[in-house]
């Protein structure tokens, strides 16, 4: 079974309780496939235990990248979260676990 990690990389960032995940193909030839298949709904469903709010997807053709902005996704945000990884920095690799 292939995972997203086999064809793309990602970096996680946080702003308050909002999680931001980039998704960038190793080979830009896979960009169109990602645009077609990795929708905001699919990301929200994959991370349903983590993301409680809306997911917005931004498509960036000039650098062949996708950006997912996930609301209410960090247990309150870094300052008051009880999570071990309060920033959600490790969640890029949770996205990349998605089976494709």
């Amino acid at each position: 079974m292939k995972k997203l990690a086999d064809i793309a990389h990602s970096r996680a960032g946080d702003k308050g309780n909002i999680l931001v995940l980039s998704l960038i193909p190793f080979d830009s030839k896979d960009f169109d496939w990602l645009v077609e298949n990795i929708t905001a709904d699919r990301v929200k469903s994959h991370l349903k235990g983590q993301i409680k709010g809306n997911v917005t997807r931004y498509v960036l053709p000039s650098i062949h990248a996708l950006q997912f902005t996930c609301e209410d996704a960090l247990a309150g945000g870094v300052t008051t979260s009880l999570a071990l990884d309060a920033h959600g920095k490790s969640l890029s690799y949770a996205l990349l676990e998605m089976e494709i």
């Binding site: 990389h9 970096r11 960032g13 931004y58 990248a65």
Partner: peptide, 16 residues
């Protein structure tokens, strides 16, 4: 380029 792409989008709520 790969690193720069990741960092360009880091913590950016709306790249536009």
């Amino acid at each position: 380029e790969r690193i720069a792409k990741e960092q360009l989008l880091y913590e950016v709520l709306d790249p536009y």
